[in-house]
């Protein structure tokens, strides 16, 4: 990751996140290329489709009878919209929602959001070209799971033993896929991996593994004391204005303040924190609240 500061230049790009609270402080996050435009997945929010049938996405399984699938009702998606829904009735076979996307050699990130009441999920980006010698392929996987809905709970598995996700909350997943020379298309799959269970998938994104991230903060009358960019699950901040030579110590940040962080790992989820000189914290999530 490389840090490139442009201040006070304002970059014309998509506004991703703003208004973390009722005050006037505004945080804008953008990427280059724009986050949505970089997404190679089609119908990522599952808003296109006819009733219960999502456009673009299809089911892949050797035992279709093991699955009940469809486009979730309005309101069941991550932001109150639609989502891909899947019930696996038992573990006789795995099954996946999938679509294929064109690719070029390089690193990509496949990410999205899931919600589950139980079962083991597999999200993976995979493809293979056996028509060239030697054959090339990619098979990048992320497993997630929960036993909250298991019939073993609570008599045999006490609630206190569980660490699984809240069945009412969407959680992010991500996986890095390195596409080799000779592979022109890969498949994005999300589903239940040989367990019974139920899951929803939404806000799918597949694009470059790294993007340049620009954060712009305006105080709208308040002075901004500091800006910090944190990656979820990583202790060290991705960016801290206090460490930035361009931001003199003990002085408020310029208004507007803009910073560009190059090569941000798109597997991550980032929290941008702006603190005013009055001690108020304003936070936004990327990608998340605007997607």
């Amino acid at each position: 990751m490389r840090l490139h500061i442009r201040t006070p230049l304002i970059v014309a790009s998509m506004v991703l996140l703003t208004f973390a609270c009722a005050s006037a402080v505004e945080i804008t996050v953008s990427t280059d290329p724009p986050y949505e435009a970089a997404n190679l997945a089609q119908n990522p929010g599952v808003e296109e489709g006819a009733d219960g049938d999502p456009a673009i996405w299809n089911l892949s399984t050797a035992v279709p009878a093991n699955f009940t699938v469809g486009r979730a009702e309005e309101g069941e998606g991550r932001n109150g919209t639609r989502a891909l829904h899947m019930i696996a009735h038992d573990d006789v076979m795995s099954g996946y929602w999938y679509q294929s996307v064109p690719v070029e050699p390089g690193d990509y990130v496949f990410r999205g959001w899931y919600r589950t009441t139980g079962g083991r999920m597999l999200m993976y980006a995979h493809g293979r070209n056996t028509e060239i010698v030697p054959p090339v392929g990619v098979d990048a996987r992320a497993f997630h799971g929960s036993s909250i809905a298991s019939f073993l709970v609570p008599v045999f598995i006490p609630h206190e033993a569980l660490t699984g996700p809240d069945p009412d909350t969407y959680y992010p997943f991500s996986v890095l896929a390195t596409v080799p020379e000779g592979l022109e298309q890969i498949t994005l799959s999300m589903g239940m991996y040989f367990t019974p269970g139920e899951a929803w998938f939404d806000d799918i994104w597949f694009g470059p593994a790294e993007l340049d991230l620009t954060v712009r903060v305006t105080g709208e009358g308040q002075q901004i004391a500091s800006l910090t960019v944190l990656r979820e699950g990583v202790e060290a901040p991705v960016y801290r204005s206090a460490d930035d030579p361009a931001c003199p110590a003990g002085q408020p940040l310029p208004d507007p303040f803009e910073v560009t962080i190059e090569g941000v790992d798109m597997r991550g989820t980032y929290t941008i924190v702006a603190e005013t000189t009055a001690g108020e914290e304003h936070r936004v999530l990327f990608p998340g609240e605007a997607q």
Partner: peptide, 25 residues
């Protein structure tokens, strides 16, 4: 046990509770 809980997040006692339950079952 990793099909039930995230072992990285779980405490030793959580893993023990889970294993005792699975063993009893």
């Amino acid at each position: 046990p990793d099909t039930f809980i995230d072992l990285e997040q779980a405490s030793g006692e959580q893993i023990a509770m889970l294993l005792r339950g699975l063993a009893d079952f």
